Simulated assay, not measured.
Amino acid sequence: MTSSDARADHIAHFPFPFPHDQYRYSTNVEPAGNCTETVAGYWGENRIAIDAHYHRELAEREQILAEDPSRHQCLPHMVPAAWDAMLTLMRTLADEYPDTMTLEKRRDEWLWKNDILGIEHSFVFGDLDTLPAPPLAYICSQIQEDVVLLDQREGALWGDAGLVTFAADWSFGFDVGMSFLEIHGPVPRVHSEKIITRAHNFLMRLGPGQSYRRTNWTLNIDGKLDTSTETYPGWGKDRRTLADGPLDDVGDRLFLRTEVQHLIRLAHSGAVMFLIRTYLLSFRDVASVPEWGERLYKVLEDLPVDMAEYKGISRIREPGMRWLLTYGSVET
Rank of each mutant, 00 (worst) to 15 (best):
P76L: 01
P76D: 03
H77Q: 13
M78A: 04
M78G: 05
M78R: 04
V79A: 09
P80S: 05
P80Q: 04
P80C: 05
A81L: 04
A82K: 05
W83F: 02
W83A: 00
A85I: 03
A85H: 02
A85C: 13
M86H: 04
L87K: 06
L87G: 00
L87P: 06
T88I: 11
T88Q: 14
L89Y: 07
L89R: 02
M90W: 02
T92R: 09
T92W: 03
L93I: 07
L93E: 04
A94C: 12
D95C: 14
D95V: 07
Y97C: 09
Y97L: 10
Y97G: 11
P98M: 07
P98D: 05
D99W: 12
M101V: 14
T102N: 13
T102F: 11
T102S: 15
L103G: 02
E104S: 15
K105Q: 12
R106P: 09
D108T: 11
D108V: 09
D108C: 12
E109M: 13
E109C: 10
E109W: 14
E109L: 15
W110M: 13
L111C: 08
L111F: 05
W112N: 04
K113V: 13
K113T: 12
K113Q: 09
D115H: 09
I116K: 14
L117S: 02
L117R: 10
I119P: 06
I119W: 05
E120L: 08
E120P: 09
H121L: 07
H121Y: 01
H121G: 03
H121D: 00
H121T: 02
S122K: 08
F123G: 00
F123C: 04
F123A: 00
F123N: 03
V124R: 10
F125P: 07
F125W: 15
D127E: 14
D127S: 12
L128A: 15
L128D: 13
D129N: 14
T130K: 15
L131I: 01
L131R: 05
L131Q: 01
A133E: 13
P134H: 11
P134G: 11
P134W: 10
P134Q: 12
P135Y: 00
P135H: 05
L136I: 03
A137D: 05
I139N: 01
I139Q: 00
C140A: 12
C140Q: 03
S141D: 10
S141K: 11
S141P: 06
